[in-house]
């Protein structure tokens, strides 16, 4: 009986007008663009939830360390890369009418081993993210390390992608090859595909 009745999306209150059978409702709600989004800023334990349109405004107003740079081809210069402990370097890149969050995360385990993870997340839906490809590149002294992938969407979790190593992943030895005076340059390019 439930499958013969159309149910409104749970996020109708924030503007979704879709009605669908019960067995399709859960899948739709996972990707519904009217779903409230958590703050994507890593490492801050921010509890904010809001609409997709409000995410960038929230990041700009409440996380003022997050700088935005315009352009599809930029250099993300992570400073003090050799600090001991866990750190995040976070910024936003604005191009093609979209904001992309760029994250470099350094994790340190109990043995003092350090791992670095760099990833790009679109402040947009999965469907919008699939229209882009990002490239992260380390370059120095004729060495080059490149990662290319589809950006995560706001529906996807950076922590999960890092856990799965679905990002640019390198260790301290690699940092020593590419850093300059304690700063690491990551060349970021975003293209439409």
């Amino acid at each position: 009986v439930a499958n013969s009745v159309l149910f409104p999306c749970t996020y109708a209150f924030s503007g979704c007008h879709i009605t669908l059978p019960y067995n399709e409702k859960v899948d739709h709600e996972k990707v519904c663009k009217f779903r409230p989004y958590p703050c994507p800023c890593p490492g801050t334990l921010c509890k904010w939830l809001g609409s997709l349109e409000a995410v960038v405004r929230h990041l700009t107003n409440e996380h003022d360390h997050v700088i935005t740079l315009k352009g599809e081809y930029i250099i993300f210069l992570a400073t003090n890369i050799n600090l001991i402990g866990g750190f995040d370097w976070v910024m936003m890149q604005f191009c093609y009418g979209f904001h992309f969050m760029l994250v470099l995360q350094k994790q340190e385990n109990r043995n003092g081993d350090q791992q670095f993870f760099a990833i790009v997340q679109l402040i947009g839906t999965r469907q919008e993210a699939e229209g882009f490809v990002y490239r992260l590149e380390l370059r120095r002294h004729r060495r080059r390390l490149t990662w290319e992938a589809t950006p995560l969407s706001i529906h996807e979790n950076i922590a999960t992608a890092i856990k799965n190593r679905d990002c640019l992943n390198f260790d301290t030895g690699t940092v020593q090859l590419f850093e300059e005076n304690g700063d690491l340059s990551i060349i970021v390019s975003i293209n439409m595909c």
Partner: peptide
């Protein structure tokens, strides 16, 4: 050939939340 010179931004490190540090 024209080479594009990308803009560069210095990004300062933010301390990771303590409870997340040892999740490797």
């Amino acid at each position: 050939r024209t080479y594009r010179v990308p803009k560069e931004v210095r990004v300062e490190p933010q301390k990771f939340a303590e409870e997340l540090i040892h999740r490797l």
